Simulated scan of single mutants.
Amino acid sequence: MTLNPASHPPAYPSATPPALIQLREVEKTYGGRAGSNAVTALHTITLDVPKGAILGVIGRSGAGKSTLIRLVNGLEQPTRGQVIVDGVEMSALDERALRHERRAIGMIFQHFNLLARRTAFDNVALPLEIAGASRAEIKARVMPLLDLVGLADKARRYPAELSGGQKQRVGIARALATNPKVLLSDEATSALDPETTEQILTLLRRVNAELDLTILLITHEMSVIKSVTDRVAVIDGGRIVEEGPTFDLFTRPQHPTTRSFVSSITGNELPAHLASRLSAKPLAGSQVLVRLTFTGGDASQPFLSVLTRKLDIDLGIIQGNVDYIGGHPFGTLVVSTPADQNCLQALTDASRDLGLHVEVLGYVA
């Protein structure tokens, strides 16, 4: 099986494809019987995963990420709402029909879940054996999959003889064995070192691009979101608080939780000695701190020089960074200038004229 490398996830600049996975007003509550207190893990979740997309769901521990993914593959049933995969309402199926539909949903796990007494070949073959495939059919499917994930020479090795990255590659091959339409990834890289993580993410991008496979990826690592997804949903306290194209959420985060995640990976966090001294109102002799965000092909332009010459003011550089999200550059620059309202307004107007996003962070003495 031959794949052409894909350096970046697909983008949808003009229109979003139809959703392959749909969650409609989904709620999941545990407990509440025999005197126990009910715990609501998910609150009225509505989410679409476009066909062929890699959508990441990011949140802190306990935010509801794993519950969400278990609803998609039918391991959990919603208390309320609908879970629809490729037009089939998973939450309305009986157990037999659910088993049949699960063949179109592949799953990879944080801790690999390989059977220790089965070889790499036999682990990948397991879903096909359960589905009743013949030995010839199994061999014709498994060996190309092991070749796809770069493990054709490890077919007869046991999990104990494989590295963590190799085990996860076997897990990916196994998830693809039944030729699924959807691949679910539940913290699949969090047990791996950074170099191996990047290799696994590169493989997921290739699989997505070449097999047109829709991927729903659960993670608490913003670096994973940045590297592989083209859309992202931020979950906090069982609610989706923000959702959209990855580039948009990185460059224009709206919710405080999103801003916190983004700042941890883009270097947008102010130094602690400044953040602790910020005031919402100007003080005598204070400076105003302004974050300028620039995106796309203009990210490498000398905006600071242009602004300084145009306004004839001194701008102090507090912090600066240029990064790439989905192959597109964006940069941030935090500058300081005297806390004069006329000066601030002039800086704001001139920056916006240059296509920059302007955010006043506060005042510091």
Rank of each mutant, 00 (worst) to 15 (best):
126 L>F: 12
42 L>I: 14
127 P>Q: 11
263 S>Y: 02
253 P>I: 14
81 G>W: 01
325 I>D: 14
248 D>H: 10
41 A>N: 05
321 N>P: 03
58 I>K: 06
165 G>F: 11
256 P>Y: 07
65 K>I: 08
279 S>L: 09
346 A>F: 03
63 A>P: 05
318 I>G: 12
227 S>V: 00
255 H>W: 08
110 Q>V: 10
154 K>F: 12
295 T>P: 01
192 L>S: 00
278 L>Y: 10
111 H>G: 03
127 P>C: 08
256 P>N: 15
225 I>M: 00
191 A>L: 03
147 D>I: 05
351 S>E: 08
8 H>A: 04
125 A>L: 08
142 V>E: 11
113 N>A: 12
75 L>R: 02
285 G>A: 11
268 N>L: 10
252 R>V: 04
154 K>N: 08
164 G>C: 08
122 D>M: 07
88 V>I: 14
213 L>F: 02
209 A>E: 13
303 F>Y: 13
138 I>T: 15
183 L>F: 04
339 A>S: 12
55 L>N: 05
330 F>Q: 00
60 R>I: 03
340 D>M: 04
33 R>S: 14
80 R>I: 01
171 G>F: 05
287 Q>V: 03
342 N>F: 15
155 A>E: 14
211 L>T: 12
74 G>E: 09
96 R>Y: 04
306 V>T: 15
204 L>S: 05
144 P>A: 07
118 R>Q: 10
261 F>T: 05
20 L>F: 14
123 N>Y: 01
92 A>S: 13
347 L>H: 06
171 G>N: 08
360 V>L: 13
123 N>D: 04
235 I>M: 04
80 R>D: 13
285 G>P: 07
208 N>A: 05
181 K>A: 09
247 F>G: 02
284 A>C: 02
361 L>R: 05
30 Y>L: 06
13 P>A: 12
159 P>F: 01
196 T>Y: 06
259 R>F: 07
321 N>S: 12
310 K>M: 07
255 H>D: 15
304 L>E: 10
302 P>F: 02
243 E>S: 12
64 G>M: 03
336 S>W: 07
29 T>W: 07
333 L>E: 02
194 P>V: 10
321 N>V: 13
136 A>C: 01
161 E>M: 07
134 S>H: 05
143 M>N: 11
88 V>Y: 02
313 I>K: 00
49 V>Q: 07
213 L>R: 11
270 L>N: 11
106 G>R: 08
359 E>P: 00
35 G>H: 05
122 D>S: 11
163 S>F: 12
208 N>Y: 11
179 N>P: 01
343 C>M: 09
76 E>L: 12
162 L>E: 14
141 R>A: 11
136 A>I: 02
194 P>F: 03
80 R>Y: 00
265 I>E: 09
227 S>W: 04
6 A>R: 01
320 G>D: 09
357 H>N: 10
145 L>V: 07
285 G>S: 10
150 G>H: 02
253 P>Q: 15
134 S>M: 04
101 E>P: 01
321 N>H: 09
314 D>C: 01
34 A>D: 14
317 I>A: 00
128 L>E: 06
36 S>L: 04
164 G>K: 06
227 S>P: 00
225 I>G: 00
207 V>Q: 14
150 G>L: 06
218 I>W: 00
4 N>I: 15
99 R>E: 12
